[in-house]
Write a protein that binds this DNA or RNA. Structure first.
Lengths: 336, 336
DNA sequence: ATGAAAGCGCTAACAC
DNA sequence: GTGTTAGCGCTTTCAT
C-alpha cells in the first residue's frame, strides 16, 4: 500500500528516525542526507500516516463540530465562520449532525472522543432535561454554541436573544400593533425560550400578553406555514402582527398569509429573526433581527482553540454576541 | 486518561484478548467472564480507541466528502442526503470545503488519504485544466459528484444539465421571448458549461444566439446582481428574459431588476436552476429547474459504499440524475 | 474458552 | 548528526 517511514528509510539506507526528522523538519539532519531523503519521499509519494501519528502523539489536530441540522442555513454560516479559523490553525473539523436528537448527539460525542479529537463545539439539539452528568464528565475542551443548556457550567458563546426579541416586539408595539402572535420554533431550544421571554416581557409591559398568542413548532418553513394557518383559524383577521422566531418560520408564514389573500405589512406586520441570506429578497423584504453568524462561529472557534492550547485554564467563559434589528418592509411603520 | 483494554484486563484479571473479545462480541467467551468484564467496562466507562483500532485494522469506517462551498444550500442538501446513508451504514463522514480552490481540494484529499479514510465523494472545485494524473493516482474509492471533470475516468453521479437547460430555454422561447440573456455562474464548473450548452443549442435552433447574451460570474447572489446590472447597461429594457444558472443568481437578478423598476414577469421573464428551498417563496415565486439534491447525495453515497465493499470491482459507473422544470410565476406564460 | 506475542506506523528518550 | 529501542491501544495469528 502506501510507503511508510520504514520503506523510505531502507531505500535511503538510513534509519527510520532520520527520515522522521526530515518529515518533521527537524534541523538536526545534514543538508545532503536531507536532500536525498526528500527526493525519495517525493518520488515515492510518501505521506505520513496521520492515524499512526495521532495514536503516538495523542494529538490528532482534529476537532468535532456538532450541529442540530445541517440543512439550516444559519448553522451552515456558523460552521463556515468556524472552519475558517480552524483551517488557518491547521486543524481539521469533523462535522456531525444530531438531527435534533439528544441521544444521537451523545453518541456522536462519544465517537468523537474515541477518535481522540482535541475539542468539541456543540450546538445542542434540545436544551431541556439534558443529562448534565454526561456533559460534565466530558474531559476534552467543549464549547457550547448558540443554544444554552440550563445548569451546565461550560464555556459558551451565545446571542443576546432575550434583549433582541424584546426590541423586536417593541418595534411592533410602537407601530401600533396590539394583537401580536409569536411563532416560537422548537420549544425545547433555549434560543427559542429566550426569544419568547423577550417577547413576553415587552407584551406584559403593555398588558397585551395572553397564552393563546403563543405557537410552538420547529424552526422550519413548514412549521411556519402551519402555525400561521393555525393562528388564522384562531383569530381570523384580527392579527396585527406576527413575531417569527426565525426567518424560515417567517417564510412559511408569508406563504400562509398570501394564501389567505392578506397583505404584508398592510394587513399583517411580520418580523423575523436570523437575517438569513435570502431574507432581504423576500416579498416583501423581511424586517428581521440580524445575527452575525460568521462571527459567532469564529468566536467559538477561537475560544475552543484557546482552551485546547491551555487545558489547565479552568476559567469558564460566556461570550455574548450582539444582534441588531434590520428594518426592511415587512413591518408597517407608522408615519409620525 | 481513558481506560484501555489493558486497564480493564488487569482489573478483571484476564488477558487483554479476552476483553477485546467481549468488546467485539466474539462468542468465544464464557457467559460468566463476559458478564464480569462487561460490568467493569460499564463502570470504568471504557470506549475502544478508534485511532488505535483504525491503525491496526486499516479500516476507519470514515469517508471524506469535499464540497466547493459549504455555504451553498444545494450542496448542504446533497451532504444531507449523503450522510443519512453513511450514518445508517455505520460510517462517519469527514466534511471538507475547498472554497472552490483546486489546490486546497488536492490538499484536503491528501490529508484524508493520510487519515486512512476509506473513500471520497468529491464535488470538484473547478473542472477545467485539472491535474488528471493526481486524480488517477488516487487508489481509494472516489466518486465524482455533480460536476464532471473532463477526461477523468472515475465513478460519477451527475445531472442531466444540458437537457434541462435546453428545456428551460425552450420554455422561454415558446412563450415569445427572443432576447434571452444567460447568467452562467462559474465558467470553470462543468455544470455551468453544460447548462450553457443546452441554452446555446435551443437558442441556435432559433437563430437567436449571440455571444453578447452570455455573462459569467459565480454561483452567488452577489454575482447575479452584478450580471443583471451589467446586462441592463448593455441592453437597457430590450431584455425579454434571463436564464439564471442557479437560484442564487436568480435572486440577485431579481434584486437588480427591482432596482430598475422593472416587473417580473411582465417586463422580464426569469428562470432559475436548482429549486432551492426558498425559491417558491420569492417575489415572484421562481420558475426553475428542480434538482433532487437529497437523492443525488444518497445515490453517490450508495455508489461509494458499493465500491468500498467491492474494491476489486473496477467497473466505472456514470449515473445520471434527472431534473424537471417547476413552473411558478417568474416566467410570462402566453395564453394560447 | 483463554492467553502470549507480534506488529500496524509513528514519535520520544536516550544513546552514540 | 544519526541510530536504537520502546511503546501508543488495538487486533491477529497461533498456542494451550
Amino acid at each position: 500500500m502506501h510507503p511508510t517511514l520504514k520503506n523510505i528509510a531502507s531505500e535511503a539506507k538510513v534509519s527510520i528516525k532520520t527520515v522522521s526528522r526530515v518529515v518533521n523538519n527537524d534541523p538536526k539532519v545534514s543538508k545532503s542526507t536531507r536532500k536525498m531523503i526528500q527526493e525519495i519521499i517525493e518520488t515515492r509519494g510518501y505521506k505520513p500516516n496521520l492515524i499512526a501519528r495521532g495514536l503516538k502523539k495523542r494529538k490528532t489536530n482534529t476537532i468535532g463540530f456538532i450541529v442540530p441540522d445541517i440543512g439550516n442555513p444559519s448553522f451552515t454560516e456558523i460552521v463556515k465562520g468556524c472552519t475558517d479559523v480552524f483551517d488557518k490553525n491547521g486543524y481539521y473539523v469533523f462535522l456531525g449532525s444530531s438531527e435534533n436528537n439528544p441521544q444521537k448527539e451523545i453518541d456522536i460525542i462519544k465517537d468523537l472522543i474515541s477518535m481522540l479529537i482535541e475539542g468539541i463545539i456543540l450546538i445542542p439539539a434540545t436544551t431541556v432535561d439534558r443529562d448534565l452528568t454526561f456533559f460534565s464528565k466530558i474531559k476534552c475542551p467543549l464549547v457550547i454554541l448558540d443554544r444554552e443548556i440550563d445548569g451546565l457550567d461550560k464555556d459558551k458563546v451565545v446571542l443576546s436573544n432575550k434583549k433582541s426579541a424584546y426590541d423586536a416586539t417593541k418595534l411592533l408595539l410602537e407601530n401600533g400593533c396590539k394583537k401580536i402572535v409569536i411563532f416560537g420554533g422548537l420549544h425545547s431550544a433555549k434560543t427559542a425560550q429566550k426569544r419568547f421571554e423577550g417577547f413576553k416581557q415587552a407584551m406584559d409591559e403593555n398588558n397585551l400578553f395572553s397564552e393563546e398568542l403563543v405557537f410552538w413548532g420547529d424552526f422550519s418553513i413548514d412549521a411556519g406555514y402551519k402555525m400561521m394557518k393555525e393562528a388564522l383559524i384562531r383569530f381570523g383577521n384580527d392579527i396585527d402582527a406576527v413575531f417569527a422566531c426565525n426567518d424560515l418560520i417567517a417564510l412559511g408564514a408569508i406563504n400562509a398569509i398570501k394564501e389567505h389573500k392578506l397583505k404584508i405589512p398592510e394587513d399583517i406586520s411580520l418580523i423575523g429573526f436570523d437575517d438569513m441570506f435570502f431574507s432581504a429578497y423576500l416579498n416583501p423584504p423581511l424586517t428581521t433581527v440580524h445575527i452575525p453568524f460568521n462571527d459567532e462561529g469564529a468566536i467559538a472557534a477561537k475560544l475552543l482553540l484557546k482552551k485546547i492550547k491551555k487545558p489547565e485554564d479552568k476559567n469558564i467563559e460566556r461570550i455574548i454576541v450582539d444582534t441588531r434589528i434590520i428594518i426592511r418592509e415587512s413591518v408597517n411603520i407608522k408615519k409620525k
